[in-house]
Design a protein around this nucleic acid. Structure first.
Lengths: 225, 225
DNA sequence: TAGATTGTTAATCGATTAACAATC
DNA sequence: TAGATTGTTAATCGATTAACAATC
């Protein structure tokens, strides 16, 4: 295997850059709504608290139209460029397994459409839930997953089950031809290298917040002395 | 200001390391449940698909008891060390604003306790929601936020409102003495440098998944030629 | 002792930032 | 023209990985 999988660098942007692009996109939308038509990389950097060279580099990597000296970027064009780069145009179907509190919340979340994703079906093993609909999305029996997946040509699988069930669900998803897994459970998934796995681990975020918080508080106590 | 805020390096671990620690911790728990008493950094690295030197460095930075050559780490001790390092012992109170689908899901989430966080109160501006309880957590009027915050000595604020309301909520939280914000809205928050802000942006995750997926699919098509 | 494993010091790699030339 | 801004090339910084010495 010559090209590393999971490596966005193959299309010229680093992972950190890729992470920042949606943030720029979001900011551009607020500025467009505020009635602005042009914006400079400098202004974006200042507003978001980032280094301006970094922003410029990011934008020039993802935008094909580019900006003009003294004028900056046309917000409408840049927005379109970023959306194209991020693939927001061609909507990708996804399935979700585990219709608990979090699963149901994601099914009801309206923001995915704008990012080019649509949850086509949900799955659970609870007979009470099977056959119901949440925000217009039908909940199917988990056993039907491989069959239904192949039917609707879906590549993305979202796991919102308990950690104990996650690996099993993951295996079932692979059977159904799922290529990328968005894992909201804490479980580490064992997958072949070709599988894309993105872990959305709340414990990780919380750890960072707690740690930073402790730093700040300790620092303050030191100051008080 | 001599020491950078928001910089975990001040206690000797880099941000990437800090992100991996909860992942190790989680894996250790599964191994303890499986009846193992000792584990080597090598084994952890292999299981999680990480570089073994990286794991060893991470563990030696966060563990005070350390491992023994040929034996590895005592899982129980290492677990305790990591939990202490991450501050899971002393439970931190948090408040949540925005009791929609996602907010309610977080209120019902049982996993926070294990990570040293407890949501003490929730807030909303919807009269239908104010006064109700979700998983035993009372929903208060957003107007009472500053007052209640000062009363219960809380440092962490969780924002699960619509993006339009996020900045306002953020300001109210600062009034109430909140020091760290866990922002689940897409809005970029404008805060003083001393404020800790952690953005949990689903669009960012989705962008990474879509991008990786596109890479893999394009690569396959190239192969088919 | 031999070998597995730890923990550290040095080399490499990649991302950020600084400096600069180009241009409207 | 002058100045703001773009986009790129070079320097710096930090994290990962490799090499190695220590130890049970």
């Amino acid at each position: 295997m010559s090209i590393k999988l999971n490596d966005p660098a193959s299309r010229g942007v680093s992972k950190p850059t890729l992470r920042r692009l949606p943030v720029y996109l979001n900011y551009l939308k607020t500025q467009a709504e505020a009635g602005k038509t042009n914006i400079s990389a400098t202004a974006v950097a200042t507003a978001l608290g980032l280094n301006e060279v970094q922003v410029r580099k990011d934008l020039s990597a993802a935008s094909k139209s580019g900006g003009r000296p003294k004028v900056g970027y046309c917000i409408a064009k840049l927005t379109a460029d970023l959306e194209e780069f991020l693939g927001y145009q061609n909507t990708k179907a996804a399935i979700l397994v585990g219709v608990g509190h979090l699963g149901a919340a994601l099914l009801s979340f309206q923001g995915f459409q704008d990012c080019g994703m649509r949850i086509a079906a949900a799955f659970d093993n609870d007979p009470e839930k099977i056959g119901t609909e949440i925000s217009g999305i039908r909940v199917y029996n988990i056993q039907d997953l491989p069959h239904i997946c192949k039917l609707i040509h879906v590549h993305i699988g979202i796991i919102t089950t308990k950690p104990e069930q996650a690996q099993n669900v993951c295996n079932t998803m692979m059977e159904g031809g799922i290529r990328a897994i968005w894992n909201f459970s804490t479980a580490h998934l064992d997958t072949p290298e070709s599988m894309i796995v993105h872990n959305e681990n709340l414990a990780v975020s919380l750890a960072m917040i707690s740690h930073d918080l402790e730093q700040v508080i300790q620092q303050e106590q030191r100051k008080e002395e």
